[in-house]
């Protein structure tokens, strides 16, 4: 097994510019897996699969159609998926969606095809705000801390390494 990679979206740093959504849609025939949601008071919340360390979708899938690949991405075996939507029921972020075209659940696969060619997930590479970080845990942790230091004080939080780590591996939002 290769070193586990993480794809971390920092809500405190996101500026809601929609670059992630744009490049994700570009490489996925117009259907982005990452989306920016906007609250009524205009806070921007990028929502994407967190590839949780303890992924409830992976545990609940009755046909074992959900698996973790060697980089740690939570992936779908499209031919095993029966479309029961159990994964959607248990996902804390409501991420998986049923694609009528593929006839299976689809979601972010951390740019699986690109990773095979040695390229990193497009959203992380292109985010102008550097709100999306990709890599091994220690590296992501460093990059998130380094980037947050540039935030306005209102968007900085006193977090211990443990708390930030927990946020990165589980997807729990520590705000």
């Amino acid at each position: 097994m290769m070193e586990r990679k993480y794809l971390y979206l920092d809500y405190l740093t996101c500026i809601g510019c929609e670059t992630c959504e744009t490049v994700c849609a570009f490489i996925h025939d117009g259907s982005p897996n990452i989306r920016i949601y906007v609250t009524e008071n205009k806070q921007y919340v990028p929502i994407n699969c967190k590839h949780c360390d303890d992924a409830p979708c992976l545990r609940v899938c009755p046909t074992h159609a959900i698996y973790r690949d060697e980089d740690g991405a939570v992936r779908i075996h499209e031919d095993k998926c029966i479309g029961c939507l159990a994964c959607l029921q248990v996902c804390p972020y409501g991420v998986p969606f049923y694609s009528l075209k593929v006839k299976a659940i689809t979601k972010c696969d951390m740019c699986a095809e690109r990773r095979e060619e040695g390229l990193e997930p497009a959203c992380a590479l292109m985010c102008p705000a550097e709100a999306i970080q990709y890599g091994p845990l220690e590296m992501v942790l460093e990059l998130v801390k380094e980037r947050r230091a540039k935030n306005i004080p209102e968007h900085q939080r006193e977090l211990s390494d443990e708390e930030l780590k927990k946020s990165i591996v589980s997807g729990y939002s520590v705000l």
Binding site: E18, M126, P128
Partner: peptide, 12 residues
Amino acid sequence: TKVGRAIKDGLY
């Protein structure tokens, strides 16, 4: 518009 919209337009 937004940065992302400009990036989208540049790409296409």
